[in-house]
Design a protein around this nucleic acid. Sequence first.
DNA 1: TGCCAGGCCCTCTTTAGGGCCTT
Length: 201
Amino acid sequence: MSANNVVVLDFETTGLSPDNGDRAIEIGAVKLVDGVVVDSFQELMNPGRRVSSFIENYTGISNQMLQTADDCETVMARFADFMGDFNLVAHNASFDKKFLDAEFNRINHQYSGQFACSLLLSRRINQDAPNHKLGTLVDYHQLPNDGVFHRALADATMTGHLWLHQLETIKQYKPQQAISFEHIQMITGMPKAKVIAFLSQ
DNA sequence: TGCCAGGCCCTCTTTAGGGCCTT
């Protein structure tokens, strides 16, 4: 499957670990088909308990905003319809996958898409970046943004731009080759030190 | 009461420790 056809997603959550009782409070996503945004998704969801002041300040999502939101199960069912069987991209995908799996488990939903991680890809193909935080990479690559950070759709949209930029970077090394999703996963799974040499072959 | 994430990756490594990322 082409790496240009993916759903790029981002969660805002009550904390770092669903194993510690944390829940999703917002999901945002963009659907890329042939490298173009054809659809987007953003919904707040009520986790059934108050979020900390740290999370309110970090995300700008207040307890008041969540009071009127649908519950997580309702929103995640709608998101399941949105993402379908698309492959998935996230920045530090291990984090978003943990929450996607935990929330989908609650509604007994299975999905077939595979995850790719723009953070791990950046560490391999942009070793000169100051660091690999999403905000830093948006500045470093001069990617489009509206100045909003730590909201789900804004972060998912910026990650989408980063992903497409990364595909272009790989194409410079492999101009004759169609870049597949499996190709990205292979590169990401390679030892970091060997990646540039591999791309230059 | 006291606890509080986890996978990746580098190095002063592998019988380990700590920084980077995500909220």
